[in-house]
Structure formats: structure tokens, C-alpha cells
């Protein structure tokens, strides 16, 4: 199901093999499948797009890679900056925290941040955590917020009361400024107007040129067309009953 638009000449950063995720709801005695048989690869400086109908588990795959979900099956092989390969599905939690800090970034549709903190600080935070000085990190954060057209008078305010589009830009800026090795994007432009979307696309392309590997879900097929070197299409997973029928047959 993987369509290679361009020949692979770039190092592979992430390989997902046989990934599956199902939720076991104890209270309701139910098993809800969310993703099945997912195979994908993400390459340095290239973007892999996840497509598929609603309910095909696109977000679930991103969360499984980031370990917000515990994968039920399969391997999530990540090649780190230092050259070692690690299965994110089974890696030690401290290791995951370290990779989140240093290498892997996730732009979700939600922004969970400390209250009271100015947006520019929140954007600068990933850099500060990696040891960049406060003033340099804030400069870079402001620069990115400016490029994403977030009005300057909002920079020193907490994003808690921002509109969806403003929040999304803060969220994006956090990840863009950090220049991660692997960037996971879950509908990063869903709340943005066309002009800002274009800016984001430009910034993402810059990151690609810089060598960032990306795995993204776009709500707009045109963006997939424009951005993706690789496309992975997911299917709606079969329910437990269907699976049981199949095994019985």
C-alpha cells in the first residue's frame, strides 16, 4: 500500500512493521481495534503522508510511534542520531523521554501547556531544555512566531485563551523551532487560513531541506500531493467479530 513517488535515496529514520493497536476497555468488556497491519517508512528529509478514511487509525499510528499509545503489536524501529536502532514500542520510558526531548517532536491538534506562560516562552522551551540560552531561544521563538504570522501582541500572552488557529501556530512553532530529527504532524493546518497554511507549507519544506524526517496526516488531499514523497493508505480495521469469523472460516 506504500506508494513511492520518488526513488528512495535517503536514509530511513523510522520503520513501522506490523503495527496494530487495539483498546481493551475493561469496564465495558470490549476490545476496540484502532489500527491493523500498518507498514510504513519515513526517510531523512522526506515526508510520508498517512491517508485513509475516518476511523482508519491515522492518529493512532502517530500516537503509537510517540508512545502516547502502547502499541499492541508490531515494531516501531527508530534509527537515532547516534546511529543505533531502537524499537520505540518496547523502549524504556526514560529512553522515550530523552528521544522526545532531543529528537522526536509531535504536533498534535491539542495544546497541553502550562498555564500563565507566555507563548514565546512555550515555543522557546524545547530549545531551552536542550541547553540553548534563554535569550537566544526566545529570539528564535519570536522569529518563528513572526514567520507563522502570529500577531506580535500575542507573543507575551499565554495561548490558553487563543483561537484554534492561533493555538495551532504556537504548537507548530514549538516543533518547527526545535528542528527535530523526526517530526510527527497530526493535521497541522486544519484550523489555518489559506495564507497561513502556505506559510506553514513553506516552513515544513525548509525543515525537509534541513533533513527532518516527517510523518504527517493532512486533512487536505492537495497538501498530500504537494508535500509527500511517500503515501501510506490505511484501512478501517476489522472488528474483533469480523476477525473471529475469518479465523473460523
Amino acid at each position: 500500500m506504500t506508494h513511492h513517488i520518488e526513488p528512495i535515496d535517503s536514509p530511513c529514520v523510522l520503520r513501522v512493521q506490523g503495527y496494530a493497536k487495539q483498546f481493551v476497555l475493561h469496564e465495558q468488556s470490549k476490545i476496540i481495534p484502532s489500527s491493523q497491519h500498518v507498514e510504513l517508512s519515513v526517510y531523512q528529509g522526506q515526508l510520508t503522508a498517512l491517508i485513509g478514511p475516518t476511523g482508519s487509525g491515522k492518529s493512532s499510528v502517530l500516537k503509537g510511534i510517540y508512545r502516547t499509545y502502547l502499541p499492541s503489536d508490531g515494531r516501531v524501529l527508530y534509527r537515532s542520531k547516534n546511529g543505533y536502532e531502537i524499537d520505540l514500542a518496547k523502549a524504556d520510558e526514560h529512553h522515550i523521554l530523552q528521544l522526545r526531548n532531543d529528537e522526536i517532536s509531535f504536533v498534535t491538534q491539542f495544546l497541553h501547556v502550562l498555564p500563565r506562560k507566555p507563548s514565546e516562552f512555550l515555543v522557546a522551551q524545547p530549545l531551552i531544555k536542550r541547553g540553548t540560552s534563554m535569550s537566544e531561544a526566545i529570539d528564535k521563538a519570536r522569529d518563528m512566531l513572526a514567520r507563522l504570522n502570529l500577531p506580535e501582541h500575542l507573543w507575551c500572552l499565554s495561548p490558553t485563551n487563543f483561537s484554534g488557529g492561533e493555538k495551532q501556530r504556537v504548537n507548530l512553532a514549538r516543533s518547527l523551532v526545535a528542528k527535530p530529527r523526526l517530526l510527527l504532524l497530526d493535521e497541522p493546518t486544519s484550523s489555518l487560513d489559506p495564507t497561513t497554511t502556505n506559510v506553514v507549507v513553506k516552513e515544513l519544506k525548509k525543515l525537509k531541506d534541513y533533513g527532518v524526517a516527517m510523518l504527517a496526516i493532512f486533512h487536505d488531499p492537495a497538501l498530500v500531493e504537494e508535500m509527500a514523497e511517500h503515501i501510506v493508505e490505511l484501512q478501517i480495521p476489522q472488528s474483533i467479530e469480523q476477525l473471529q469469523e475469518k479465523t473460523q472460516a
Binding site: 483498546f23 500516537k63 508512545r67 499509545y69 520510558e93 522515550i96
Partner: peptide
């Protein structure tokens, strides 16, 4: 587990 995992994908 990782806090986001415990809150979004609790096992127990």
C-alpha cells in the same frame, strides 16, 4: 508509564 500514555491509553 509515560504520563500521556497512562492518561490516554490506560491499561488497567
Amino acid at each position: 508509564g509515560l504520563t500521556d500514555q497512562v492518561l490516554e491509553d490506560p491499561q488497567h
